[in-house]
Design a protein around this nucleic acid. Sequence first.
DNA 1: AATGAATGAGTTTTCATTCAT
DNA 2: TATGAATGAAAACTCATTCAT
Lengths: 211, 211, 211, 211
Amino acid sequence: MGKITGMEPVSEIPPKVLLLYNAVKQLIGEGVDVNDIRVLSITERAGIGKGTAYEYFDSKEEIIACAFLYYVNGLAERINTTLLPMNNLREQINYLFDELDKDSEKKYCFMRFVHGATDHSKFSQLVREKLMESDMGREFPEYLFGAVIRQGVERGEIDSSIPASYLIYAVFCKVLTYMMCIGMEDLVRMEVGGLRPLIVEGILRDLKGGL
Amino acid sequence: MGKITGMEPVSEIPPKVLLLYNAVKQLIGEGVDVNDIRVLSITERAGIGKGTAYEYFDSKEEIIACAFLYYVNGLAERINTTLLPMNNLREQINYLFDELDKDSEKKYCFMRFVHGATDHSKFSQLVREKLMESDMGREFPEYLFGAVIRQGVERGEIDSSIPASYLIYAVFCKVLTYMMCIGMEDLVRMEVGGLRPLIVEGILRDLKGGL
Amino acid sequence: MGKITGMEPVSEIPPKVLLLYNAVKQLIGEGVDVNDIRVLSITERAGIGKGTAYEYFDSKEEIIACAFLYYVNGLAERINTTLLPMNNLREQINYLFDELDKDSEKKYCFMRFVHGATDHSKFSQLVREKLMESDMGREFPEYLFGAVIRQGVERGEIDSSIPASYLIYAVFCKVLTYMMCIGMEDLVRMEVGGLRPLIVEGILRDLKGGL
Amino acid sequence: MGKITGMEPVSEIPPKVLLLYNAVKQLIGEGVDVNDIRVLSITERAGIGKGTAYEYFDSKEEIIACAFLYYVNGLAERINTTLLPMNNLREQINYLFDELDKDSEKKYCFMRFVHGATDHSKFSQLVREKLMESDMGREFPEYLFGAVIRQGVERGEIDSSIPASYLIYAVFCKVLTYMMCIGMEDLVRMEVGGLRPLIVEGILRDLKGGL
DNA sequence: AATGAATGAGTTTTCATTCAT
DNA sequence: TATGAATGAAAACTCATTCAT
């Protein structure tokens, strides 16, 4: 049987594979470092046999990388279906941060993704390879935030002369900063409460550009 | 003999320990992921016996964490001695990016630090603990950029009503974004050349605030 | 899978574990000191993979301690089934020494047990802990010789006014002495042949007490 | 320089070597298992450099074995100078047990010796070799208790027809039993208090034999 | 298709011993 | 003579992966 590639449409993902994906997300959400995830913890959590995981995947890294793609795909879909109907940039951005504030699991998962995209581990290389092959292609952040930003340009809230990619990174970078500050609350002296409005205004200012 | 804690003044660091620190930096600079560094690669690279490393450190993680502290300390020192004599914010920021553009090793190393501060590995926990105990204390980014920013406020280039911590993060986060874009050049469609002026202007705008 | 505790009924001990137990007994019987036994020697001798041992046990010490319990359990069972049907104390005692004289492996193994019960190594602590938890409980020598001695009291061969625990130790101590003399044959000038009747008579005299 | 052999007269033992011997005794007395003693613990305890130990001895085992010989020699000397002037066997035996009861360090040290004489470690082999070469020769227990027993025979308290070696072992073995019971107090259900008179009477009975 | 017992390569760590000072 | 920094051989243990059932 052909192995799972991570490119399957959601509807064609076998149930046991979904159990594996969910187990990975749970572990990540519980604070287990990506590099410390064990095959046994995944399969135990998923409630299936260790050998079964190897029926669907060639290696541990494949399991985690595909789980990530699945997670990010879902995230992008949710962002688009929830954010697009809103007709105001500030409202959209605030919703984003509300979501991030809501439960720590989401923050962790997103943080881990950034981690996965920035380290050099076997797993991270695989994620990159798969992202390159996937329909998210070489424009992953665009894939996440693109539609929302195009909408903002149309509404006149965003300076159309700024390259789209920079706009996207401006958002991405501020979101990342917000989460880093939260994640390192123990390390840096900063009241997170006061940070959020500054971040939100910063994003709006960056996007507004010369307007 | 007491073990190395990473808090030693540079002048008191034993030569073999410096060899170890340098070996770690080299490996990181060559793209080895922090979690994939082996004790043997470090000591072989340092040209000393495996046992010697354990004369100075209690574990692999201690070696790498202390190497990081040493690296970051040196970085902070260089930033302060080079940037402070300049009398113009734009010049200072451009120098920073010139340095980052100069050699990839620096970028990688800095990226790895961010990685180290965001993952949940044994090594990362140790780095955090050591940062908390060190004289960089709970204000690490302030430690890095604080003096430069205070100077800018005095020169009237920076809005003094914005909390210092946010200003610092505004810089830190933009620098990080720049490096992420560079580091993921293979993943995202973006001409790095066009990005830099946008980032620099963004920083200046963030710092200027309401001025 | 749950790890082996050493309390399993013999019938429920997995075959690979029996191979491990036997390998330990062989090594001990060949004169390898308990503290010098290596995991690899055990698994190689057992003809199984090193990792397999760790599927069943948490540490080297657990393997050896459980092997001991298994050995001692077997010994106690054999003593009880063979000695009890005899209807004469002298006959029973002589049988015991015949068994000890028969093959050196038995002597060695028993010596090692005494060693295990008297040293302070990690292994010995574990043996004690397990003995305390086991159904041999806090009365290990009683477990070994108790039934035989109670029989002797009933037959009028043993002074019933002497506390049972002392009687047991009187036997245990003489047996130990016999084996120590044999084990140190190279060290002490003594014809072992002449020793045995003295020991046997000594035991009978100790047990007879005031009778 | 010639290395220490353990056969030196006490007066010719270099001071640093005495420090090493004492350190070993202390460690043993504190319950460290012979097989777990580290060279560094010995030299640190002795307050001398690690290298210095190797100026006097060829290996760790040599250090410990020689320390043992020194300890046992001292013990034998003390037994002979204290016990011989007493003119009554019961008094002598009671004094021996009083000594054993006095401090636990003595019990531990003696127990360890027995341990050393019964296991198969590199250290134990060396002890045996050295005992064979030493003036204690092949008659170690005789060396310890011989004079006292000969005295008892002369006083008519001991049956002269029993071979000396058995008499010696009868004592040795009872003493050993006493200490085993004490050492395993946690393991066996027995009131140590009641044990001692039984042991003492047992020894006297064994020695009296047919008298 | 699903399983989990079996495996051994690979890693960290310890510590007796050496040797230059 | 005394030292302790340097060493590497040796050992325990982990865990991804295989494969017979």
